[in-house]
Amino acid sequence: MLEMRDVCFHYGNGTPILEHMNVEIGAGEFIGLGGRNGCGKTTVTRLLMGLEKPVSGEIRYDGRIINEDDASRRSAFIGYVFQRPERQMFRPTVRDEVAYGPQQFGRQADEIEASVQAALEQTGLSDLADAYPPNLNRGEKQRVAIASAIAMHTQYLILDEPTSGQDSADKEELMQLLTKLNRQGLTVLIISHDMDIFAEYCHRVLVIGQHTKAFDGTPEELFTKRDDLYDLGLSRPDSVTLSLSVPGLPYCKSMKDFTAAMLQKLGGQK
Rank of each mutant, 00 (worst) to 15 (best):
54 P>T: 10
119 A>L: 12
42 T>A: 03
95 R>P: 02
141 K>S: 00
116 V>D: 03
47 L>I: 12
89 M>A: 04
83 Q>E: 09
84 R>G: 01
81 V>K: 09
93 T>I: 06
62 D>K: 15
54 P>L: 09
59 I>H: 08
51 L>T: 09
54 P>V: 10
115 S>L: 15
133 P>M: 13
95 R>V: 01
108 Q>D: 14
96 D>Q: 07
87 R>I: 00
121 E>F: 01
72 S>H: 12
88 Q>Y: 08
54 P>D: 06
142 Q>I: 12
122 Q>H: 09
41 K>P: 04
48 L>T: 14
105 F>H: 15
89 M>P: 01
107 R>D: 05
102 P>Q: 05
106 G>Y: 13
103 Q>I: 04
94 V>K: 12
135 N>F: 04
120 L>D: 03
100 Y>K: 14
47 L>P: 02
116 V>C: 04
127 D>N: 15
100 Y>D: 11
113 E>M: 04
102 P>Y: 10
81 V>F: 10
136 L>R: 11
103 Q>W: 04
128 L>P: 00
66 I>D: 03
131 A>M: 05
136 L>E: 08
132 Y>V: 00
81 V>R: 08
82 F>H: 10
132 Y>L: 00
39 C>S: 15
39 C>K: 14
78 I>S: 09
65 I>P: 00
142 Q>E: 12
81 V>Y: 07
49 M>V: 04
115 S>T: 15
94 V>H: 11
68 E>K: 13
83 Q>Y: 07
85 P>D: 07
75 S>K: 12
98 V>F: 06
136 L>W: 06
122 Q>M: 14
139 G>D: 04
79 G>H: 11
77 F>S: 13
100 Y>Q: 11
102 P>R: 11
140 E>G: 03
45 T>I: 08
109 A>I: 03
44 V>M: 15
95 R>I: 02
96 D>C: 02
112 I>R: 14
102 P>F: 04
116 V>G: 03
141 K>D: 01
127 D>L: 15
141 K>N: 01
108 Q>H: 09
72 S>Q: 14
75 S>F: 08
92 P>G: 08
131 A>F: 05
131 A>R: 13
123 T>H: 11
104 Q>S: 07
81 V>E: 11
85 P>K: 05
73 R>Q: 14
88 Q>A: 11
126 S>H: 10
110 D>N: 06
78 I>Q: 09
38 G>L: 12
84 R>E: 06
83 Q>T: 06
116 V>H: 03
92 P>S: 12
104 Q>Y: 03
140 E>F: 02
90 F>E: 09
62 D>M: 11
43 T>A: 06
131 A>L: 03
123 T>N: 14
69 D>V: 00
119 A>M: 14
109 A>T: 02
61 Y>E: 15
117 Q>H: 01
121 E>K: 05
89 M>V: 11
118 A>T: 14
47 L>H: 11
124 G>S: 02
110 D>C: 06
40 G>P: 03
100 Y>W: 15
116 V>Y: 04
137 N>V: 02
124 G>P: 02
118 A>P: 01
136 L>I: 04
81 V>P: 13
89 M>N: 12
55 V>M: 00
83 Q>R: 08
93 T>W: 13
81 V>W: 08
104 Q>G: 08
51 L>I: 09
44 V>H: 14
73 R>D: 02
52 E>P: 00
109 A>N: 05
111 E>D: 08
87 R>C: 00
86 E>T: 07
69 D>S: 07
141 K>Y: 03
95 R>Y: 10
